[in-house]
Structures are given as structure tokens and as C-alpha cells.
Amino acid sequence: MKTQEELTEIVRDHFSDMGEIATLYVQVYESSLESLVGGVIFEDGRHYTFVYENEDLVYE
């Protein structure tokens, strides 16, 4: 089982391919040991929310 830090790094690596990240945040109250819920804001102003669970990243 991966730690929350490892899950965060996986998500950061994925989004870094889309541009320069200004902020990546995790909603700790919605996340667990198996899933990571949060959002990412890019330097150009784009903002996505995401759920990473079971090695699957869903964002909008």
C-alpha cells in the first residue's frame, strides 16, 4: 500500500506533463489510505479537481 506522500507524487507527476503547477492540494478530510482527493492549479490559471484511487486518476 502506498503512503499519501507517494500518491501525491504520482498525481504531481501526471499533472506536470500538462504544464507548470502553481499549487497541488489534498483534501485530507475526503482522502484515505486508498484514495487521494484534491486539486491542482497551474501557473496559467487552469484548475482541476481530482480523485486518485486504485491506480486510476479521474479529474475535471
Rank of each mutant, 00 (worst) to 15 (best):
E20N: 13
V40F: 02
V40N: 01
M18D: 04
A22Q: 13
T3D: 08
V58N: 10
I21T: 02
T8G: 05
L7T: 03
E9Q: 12
E55A: 14
E55K: 09
T23R: 10
L7I: 15
F15T: 01
F15I: 03
D56Y: 14
G39K: 11
Y25C: 05
I21D: 01
E60F: 08
V58T: 14
G38Y: 02
R46L: 05
G38V: 03
E60T: 11
Y29L: 07
V58Y: 07
H47C: 05
E9C: 12
L36G: 02
D44E: 02
V51Q: 09
V51R: 15
K2R: 11
E9D: 11
S35V: 08
Y52T: 02
V26D: 02
G45K: 04
T8R: 11
D17F: 11
T8A: 10
L36K: 01
D44H: 02
S31P: 15
D44Y: 01
V40G: 00
T23C: 08
D44I: 01
V26L: 06
T8S: 11
D56F: 06
D17C: 12
H14P: 02
F50W: 07
A22R: 15
Y29I: 05
G19N: 02
E20K: 15
M18Q: 08
G39R: 11
S31N: 12
G45I: 01
F50H: 00
E34W: 08
E5D: 08
R12W: 12
L33F: 11
V28I: 10
S31G: 11
V11S: 01
H14S: 08
V26R: 01
N54H: 12
V11H: 01
H14T: 10
Y48D: 01
D13N: 07
V26N: 03
E30H: 12
Y25W: 09
R46T: 10
F50N: 00
V37D: 03
V26T: 07
S35P: 04
E43V: 14
S16L: 14
M1I: 10
H14V: 12
V28L: 14
L36H: 01
E6L: 07
T3Q: 05
H47P: 00
E5M: 06
E60H: 15
E5I: 06
E5C: 07
E60Q: 15
D56P: 02
T8Q: 13
S16T: 10
I41L: 05
G19V: 02
Y52K: 02
V40I: 09
V40Y: 01
D44P: 01
S32P: 10
Q27R: 15
L57V: 09
Q4C: 06
L57W: 04
S32Y: 07
Y59E: 03
N54I: 04
S16N: 12
I41S: 05
E34V: 11
Q27Y: 07
M1D: 09
M18E: 04
T49E: 04
L24S: 02
Y59I: 15
I10L: 14
E30S: 13
I41K: 11
L57F: 09
S16I: 10
H47F: 09
V37H: 14
S35E: 07
F42K: 00
Q4S: 06
I10S: 06
V11W: 02
E6F: 12
F50T: 00
M1A: 14
E9V: 13
V40P: 00
R46K: 13
Q27N: 14
E30L: 08
Y52R: 02
F42Y: 11
V51S: 13
Q27G: 13
H14F: 15
V28R: 10
S35D: 03
E60P: 03
G38Q: 01
D56L: 14
F42M: 11
E30F: 04
E6N: 05
H47V: 08
Y52A: 03
M1F: 14
E9G: 11
Y52E: 00
D13R: 15
F42I: 02
D17E: 11
L7F: 04
F42H: 01
L36N: 01
T49S: 10
G19P: 02
S31F: 13
R12E: 04
E20L: 12
S35N: 07
D17M: 15
E55T: 14
Y29G: 07
D56V: 14
H47L: 05
H47W: 12
Y52V: 05
T49F: 05
I10M: 09
G45C: 05
E20P: 15
M18I: 09
Q27V: 10
G45E: 04
G39D: 05
F42E: 00
I41P: 00
L57D: 00
R46C: 05
D17T: 14
G19I: 01
Q4A: 09
V11P: 01
G38R: 00
Y48F: 12
M18A: 04
G39P: 00
I10D: 06
T23H: 08
E60A: 12
I21W: 02
E60G: 11
R12N: 05
T49Q: 06
I21S: 01
S35C: 06
H14E: 06
K2F: 07
I21K: 01
G19Q: 02
E60S: 15
E6W: 07
F15E: 01
S35M: 08
I10W: 14
D44C: 03
E34A: 15
L36R: 00
D56Q: 14
L33E: 09
T8V: 13
E34Q: 13
E9L: 14
D13Q: 11
Y48R: 00
Y48N: 01
R46S: 12
S16G: 10
V40A: 04
E55I: 05
V28G: 13
D44W: 02
F42W: 03
D56A: 09
V58M: 11
V26F: 06
S31Q: 11
S35F: 09
Y52N: 01
G19A: 04
V58I: 12
T49P: 03
F15W: 03
L57S: 02
E55C: 07
T3F: 04
V58Q: 15
G39L: 11
G38N: 00
A22E: 10
Y29H: 09
S32A: 14
M1N: 13
E53K: 15
F15M: 11
I21M: 04
E5N: 07
V26Y: 04
L33C: 07
L57C: 04
T8K: 12
V51W: 06
G45T: 04
V51I: 08
H14Y: 12
D56N: 13
I41T: 08
D13P: 04
S35A: 08
N54K: 09
E9M: 09
V58P: 01
F50M: 01
E43F: 14
L7P: 01
S35W: 06
E6A: 07
R12D: 02
I21R: 01
F50S: 00
I41Y: 12
V28C: 07
T8I: 15
E5W: 12
Y52Q: 02
L57R: 01
F15C: 02
G19W: 03
G19Y: 03
V51E: 06
L7W: 04
E55L: 11
L36M: 13
F50L: 01
E43I: 10
E30Q: 11
Y29R: 04
N54Y: 12
E60N: 15
S32Q: 10
E6K: 06
V37C: 07
T23G: 05
S35Y: 13
D44A: 02
Q4W: 08
I10V: 12
Y52C: 04
L24P: 00
V28D: 12
V37Y: 10
A22P: 02
V26H: 03
I10Q: 06
R12A: 09
L7M: 11
N54E: 07
F50G: 00
V58D: 09
G19R: 01
A22C: 06
E6S: 05
L7C: 03
D13H: 15
S35T: 13
N54C: 05
V40T: 03
Q27D: 10
D44R: 00
I41R: 07
Q27L: 09
F42V: 00
Y52W: 12
F42S: 00
G19M: 02
E6V: 10
V26P: 02
V58W: 08
N54G: 11
S16D: 08
E34Y: 05
M18G: 03
K2G: 06
E30C: 08
V11N: 01
E20V: 15
I21L: 07
I21A: 02
T3C: 05
E43W: 10
T8M: 13
S16E: 09
I21Q: 02
Y25T: 06
V40K: 00
Y25F: 05
S35K: 13
E60M: 15
R46V: 06
E60C: 10
E34S: 15
T49L: 15
S32D: 10
E53N: 09
D56I: 12
E9F: 12
T8P: 02
L7G: 02
E53S: 14
I41N: 03
F50K: 00
